[in-house]
């Protein structure tokens, strides 16, 4: 085998190896959530699963008084509801087929509780979280 041929072999094998590394790197896809699920500064994505597989994500939502926020509600498994007690947020049903976006401007400081309002699993009543309005 002459030098030129050796170099071509090396080149092709290296390209192939690089491609394999790229493919294997796809295993780390879950780490790219921030890139592929872009969030606007005033946007909060709330993913909802039955309590058994995690409940609300995030479980604590912090917003600033007087600033409008957009809550993007996504159901991961079955239909859920989203109600913040004491505030004017009451989404009757969020089906897994479609996300629901709610706009809200908090007026008063305080700590509120939000919960799921649609029977979703044996631990449905434990599916809740904290909604904090800071000054």
């Amino acid at each position: 085998m002459n030098e030129v041929m050796k170099k071509t072999v090396l080149l092709w094998e290296s390209i192939a190896l690089l491609l394999v590394v790229v493919a294997v790197a796809a295993f780390f896809l879950p780490l790219a959530d921030g890139i592929f699920m872009p969030r606007e500064p005033d946007e909060i994505v709330v993913r909802m699963s039955i309590k058994e597989s995690g409940g609300f994500d995030p479980e604590v939502i912090t917003v600033k008084k007087g600033q409008t926020v957009r809550l993007v509600l996504i159901s991961m498994d079955v239909s859920h509801g989203f109600t913040v007690e004491g505030l004017d947020i009451d989404v009757k049903i969020v089906n897994p087929e479609k996300k629901v976006v709610v706009e809200f401007t908090p007026e008063e400081e305080g700590v509120y509780m939000f919960k799921c309002t649609v029977q979703c699993s044996p631990l449905h009543h434990y599916m809740r979280g904290l909604f904090i309005v800071e000054g």
Partner: peptide
């Protein structure tokens, strides 16, 4: 292979449904 790696990672870390 690319699809397989996505299958593997989504199977372990993706949506349980």
């Amino acid at each position: 292979l690319l699809i397989f790696m996505i299958v593997l990672t989504t199977a372990f870390f993706g949506n349980p449904t």
